[in-house]
């Protein structure tokens, strides 16, 4: 089986995996980074979203061998020690989750949105969230969380 090196959350990991292994399976099963979830496995729900070179990607729809040479960030790599990433804190504050299954994907996806657009409107947030399905919240508090995080990162009052 081929050996590949993946750089995940600022650390290099060398793993043996088949060419057909999906990135999400290597992250979860071999690196035990189980914060990245598999919801649909059909490229629609976004629960498996991670960052590859800063871009949100569905890790169920990318081969692990394709992620060599890239900087991968998972939900486990967002917080700074015990200090939550501002988007994680905003989801907590705004109650942007219920069962929590979709949350890591939501947080990964929306951190990219705010890095691109520090002041997204509600329609812009909802358009962006088309790649992430939540079956609990009805999305309202997720949208509020993103707005709260964006306001905070612009230096205003969260």
């Amino acid at each position: 089986m081929p050996t590949i090196t993946l750089r995940v959350n600022r650390k290099n990991h060398t793993v043996e995996c088949a060419n057909s292994s999906l990135l999400v399976d290597v992250l979860r099963e071999q690196l035990r980074l189980t914060g990245t979830h598999v919801g649909c496995d059909t490229s629609q729900c976004g629960a498996c979203t991670v960052h590859v070179d800063g871009h949100s990607v569905k890790s169920c729809t990318m081969l692990a061998v394709e992620a060599q040479d890239a900087e991968i960030t998972t939900i486990e790599g967002l917080a700074d020690g015990n200090t939550l990433h501002p988007m994680q804190a905003a989801f907590q504050e705004c109650h942007g989750l219920q069962c929590g299954f979709c949350t890591s994907g939501m947080v990964m996806s929306t951190t990219e949105l705010v890095s691109r657009n520090p002041d997204p409107s509600e329609p812009e947030i909802r358009h962006w969230l088309e790649g992430n399905l939540c079956r609990c919240t009805g999305y309202h508090n997720i949208v509020r969380a993103v707005q709260t995080c964006a306001r905070g990162s612009r230096g205003g009052t969260p």
């Binding site: 590859v52 990607v57 569905k58 729809t61 990318m62 996806s109 949105l113 088309e130 790649g131």
Partner: peptide, 9 residues
């Protein structure tokens, strides 16, 4: 097209 994650890849 698709969604942000699909457009990124």
């Amino acid at each position: 097209i698709g969604d942000p994650q699909v457009r990124n890849r």
